[in-house]
Computed example of a mutant assay.
Amino acid sequence: MSARIVKIYLLETRIEELEEILQKHVRRFWREAVPGGQEKFSCIVQQRYTERLLNELWEVFQQEPQFTAYVEAIEAVIPPIEETPDTELPLDTDLPPPTALERFFSRDRLSTDELYDDIEESLHVRPSYLITVTLSAIIAGLGMHSGQTAVVIGAMIIAPLLGPTMGVALAATVGDSKLGKQASLTLAIGCFFAVISGLILGLIVEIDPLTPELRNRTLVQPADVALALACGAAGVLAFSRGASLALVGVMIAVALVPPLAAVGIYMGAGFPVASANAAFLFAANLVCVNVAGIATFLCQGLPPKSWRITGGILFVWSVLLVMLLSMMAGRIILGFGSWEVVLDFISRRS
């Protein structure tokens, strides 16, 4: 069972209000006095109920200067807390009951505050972030150049674009414009450095444009769209359950880092058509990851501040996806940007 310890500090004058709230969301709790006229409550809360407990605590006590709440993970609880339909804690009568889909997906999801905390540190453009983006792109580029898939996977484990990518999807889901701007800026800077790293690599290393690992990053097929959608959904599911960042990073990076490195490599090697194809693959993957990410967050019951804003953002991403799919179909049917064009360009150059 996934559970959390929520430690709450509050003035003793408001204890009755707090106990009423705890009865609705908490399985077990105990109370102790602390200096300063405060009381400390240590509560065992199932992970699925943490979100609604924190929301109600903030709604009631946000104006209370002495109020503080901490959330910690629990490895085990004895005696165990059963989770059955009979023991399920009820919602307030003014809230709609969760759907079966929300109940299933939200069972082990981290609370929104925990997700924010996990993402926050990775949204700042620091030297370490720029260095890891550069190294990741170089490793991916060299792996594709030499045809070593294991090396490309190693570049993905570095996962420099994980935080910004998850941040964009999370911001769109909850309607947080500040988080969205910060995540988008960090992601854009990271993408720029990845392309520049690939460009330098393409200028100094002799490139065979037909190397399978490189060429695959210039082909956009229906399977690539399905892969990017699966990566986005799987990445959000793993991330929202506190899975290993390396695991989540591989899921996200498979759709983003190699195409970006390929854009720069082909550009530096003098193959503009192939570079444009790789950029198109990256754009399609980025849109797919966000569409799948937002949809998965919503399925997990992540609460939007405004359904109108969140629905509008998801609609825009979906329209972009449809446009890219239409362009993909046109490129396949008409042969625009195909490898026949690239090979013809190579033959004329030689």
Rank of each mutant, 00 (worst) to 15 (best):
F41D: 07
F41H: 06
S42N: 03
S42M: 12
C43V: 04
C43W: 03
Q46A: 09
Q46G: 04
Q47I: 10
Q47V: 07
R48P: 03
E51Q: 10
R52H: 01
R52S: 03
L53N: 02
N55T: 09
N55R: 14
N55F: 02
E56C: 00
E56F: 05
L57S: 05
W58R: 11
W58Q: 09
W58E: 08
E59T: 09
E59F: 10
E59Y: 10
E59R: 12
E59N: 07
E59D: 12
E59M: 11
V60L: 10
F61D: 02
Q62D: 08
Q63L: 11
E64P: 07
P65A: 15
F67K: 05
F67E: 01
F67A: 03
F67M: 07
T68L: 14
T68K: 13
T68P: 01
Y70N: 04
Y70M: 11
Y70W: 11
A73P: 00
A73C: 06
A73S: 13
E75S: 10
A76M: 12
V77Y: 00
P79N: 08
P80F: 13
P80I: 14
P80Q: 14
I81F: 01
E82K: 10
P85Y: 13
P85S: 13
D86C: 01
T87F: 12
T87C: 03
T87W: 09
E88F: 10
L89G: 01
P90R: 15
L95P: 00
P96I: 15
P97A: 15
P98L: 15
T99S: 15
T99D: 11
T99A: 09
A100R: 12
A100K: 10
L101R: 06
L101N: 08
L101T: 10
E102D: 08
E102T: 09
E102R: 02
E102S: 00
F104L: 13
F105H: 05
